[in-house]
């Protein structure tokens, strides 16, 4: 039987996001030239929340984009059924401080695809990676710059990031032994 344990409840998630928002501004030396890019799908919701927190604190209008990495997946030639392609909408990235936002960092393959895709949209000044959960298990030399929490997991585990916009509640849960 799979067991489900809470990593972050609603309040903890709110606190974590607030800290991450602050950290983004610090690492990017302000909001000038800052672009938040969320990876479809939950990365988009998280980036949207971070943008609102930053705009509130800084009185800014941080640029925002969404990225679907499906067409850049490295397993597209081998995966049988075709994954559904989501929307990509990015502002100009040339010379910008781009922060890629995703929910869970695991193998690093999604981020590899996201970096390739961003390169097709221009040449950012720098790119930072911001994730809510780093669950370890990397298969590529990729690390996050801003991390909500780290969790040690095994390959059979699943990390569920739930957001009110899509799932009706805010929570991060670890599902073990599936």
């Amino acid at each position: 039987m799979p067991t489900r344990t809470s990593l972050l409840d609603e309040r903890a998630l709110t606190r974590t996001l607030a800290r991450m928002a602050t950290e983004i501004v610090e690492r990017a030396h302000g909001t000038e030239g800052l672009v938040l890019v969320g990876i479809q799908r939950r990365g988009v919701e998280l980036a949207d929340r971070l943008k609102r927190l930053i705009d509130q604190a800084e009185g800014s209008q941080v640029a925002f984009g969404k990225l679907d990495i499906t067409l850049y997946r490295d397993d597209l030639q081998t995966v049988g059924p075709r994954p559904v392609v989501g929307e990509t909408r990015l502002p100009n990235l040339d010379g910008k401080n781009v922060v890629i936002v995703d929910d869970v960092l695991y193998t690093g393959r999604t981020i590899r695809a996201a970096l390739d895709e961003c390169a097709d949209f221009g040449r950012p000044r720098r790119i930072l990676l911001c994730v809510l959960i780093d669950r370890g298990g990397r298969e590529l030399p990729i690390q996050a710059d801003i991390v909500g929490i780290t969790a040690s997991t095994s390959p059979g585990d699943r990390v569920d990031v739930l957001v009110t916009e899509l799932d009706g509640r805010d929570a991060v849960e670890l599902v073990r032994g599936t």
Partner: peptide, 20 residues
């Protein structure tokens, strides 16, 4: 072209954050 190059689409992507 995209759809024919594979089989049926994987709607599971809309479920939970498995990947990373």
């Amino acid at each position: 072209l995209y759809l024919l190059a594979g089989g049926s689409p994987d709607w599971a992507g809309q479920g939970g954050g498995v990947d990373g």
